[in-house]
Amino acid sequence: MNLKYEVLPDDKIKICKDLCNELMVFQKSKAYLKPELFDNMNYETRLVPSVNKAIHNYTVVVKDDDQIVAYVYSNISPKETYDNEFATFFDMSTVSKDNVACLSQFYIKEDYRQYGIGSKLFNKSMEWIKRFDDIEDYFIYVSNGNNDALEFYKRKGFSVSHDILDGFITVLRNKKQ
């Protein structure tokens, strides 16, 4: 393996399209509640709108030679972004600042799991998020059935806050330390 980590500018996120679509298929395959909700989720409906609505974006891809094998996307967004037609992701009154941080998408191709790539991408995202002095609340949303991801984030210091959409998504939360 010849792994390289590369931070992408927003105008280059299209190279994540295939992996983002693969993430949605993976999440659907794990889901035991409402898997059909993933039918309309893809790069155009998830990643592009999130990047466009955010104040700041941070995308890191991992390449093995020229093949993209993993990515993480995090953002800083107005808290109101997470109260939309799909769901209300958290109680707005529990967030004192105007903006929140979200580790929004995270995917590693199966053959590349268990090599520490996930921890490295997670750490890069958290280092980026912590640069913002005006952010106190960090969120991660895990789809039902993805217990490996849920346990990974708990080991990294996040706590389960609540479920939304009748358990379709588990909300994890952490506060700035």
Rank of each mutant, 00 (worst) to 15 (best):
Phe139Val: 06
Asp18Met: 11
Ile108Thr: 07
Glu44Gln: 07
Lys97Trp: 08
Ile135Cys: 01
Asp39Thr: 09
Asn144Ser: 07
Arg173Phe: 14
Ser96Leu: 12
Ala149His: 00
Asp11Arg: 09
Asn174Val: 08
Glu6Tyr: 15
Tyr141Phe: 14
Val48Gly: 03
Asp10Gly: 11
Met41Val: 03
Phe139Cys: 05
Leu150Trp: 01
Asp65Val: 10
His56Tyr: 15
Lys130Thr: 00
Phe168Trp: 05
Asn42Ser: 05
Glu127Asp: 15
Thr94Gly: 13
Phe86Arg: 10
Leu37Met: 11
Lys12Thr: 05
Val25Asn: 04
Leu150Tyr: 03
Gly157Ile: 14
Asp148His: 05
Tyr5Trp: 11
Lys12Pro: 12
Asp64Arg: 00
Asn146His: 04
Gln177Val: 11
Pro9Asp: 14
Lys17Gly: 02
Lys109Pro: 00
Phe90Arg: 02
Thr88Val: 05
Asn99Asp: 08
Ser104Trp: 02
Lys109Phe: 00
Tyr141Met: 06
Tyr107Val: 03
Asn75Gly: 14
Lys176Val: 01
Asp137Gly: 01
Lys154Ser: 11
Asp18Tyr: 12
Leu23Asp: 04
Phe158His: 05
Val48His: 05
Ser96Ile: 13
Val51Cys: 10
Leu47Val: 06
Leu23Ala: 02
Ser159His: 10
Tyr5Gln: 03
Lys109Trp: 00
Ser96Thr: 12
Asn144Tyr: 07
Leu165Phe: 03
Glu136Trp: 00
Val48Ile: 15
Asn75Tyr: 08
Gly157Glu: 09
Lys12Asn: 15
Asp91Glu: 12
Lys53Gln: 10
Tyr82Asp: 08
Ser77Glu: 06
Glu80Tyr: 09
Asp66His: 10
Asn84Met: 09
Asn2Lys: 15
Thr81Ser: 13
Gln177Lys: 14
Val48Glu: 00
Ile129Val: 13
Asn174Gly: 06
Asp91Lys: 09
Glu110Ile: 06
Glu85Lys: 13
Ala31Lys: 00
Lys14Arg: 14
Asp64Pro: 14
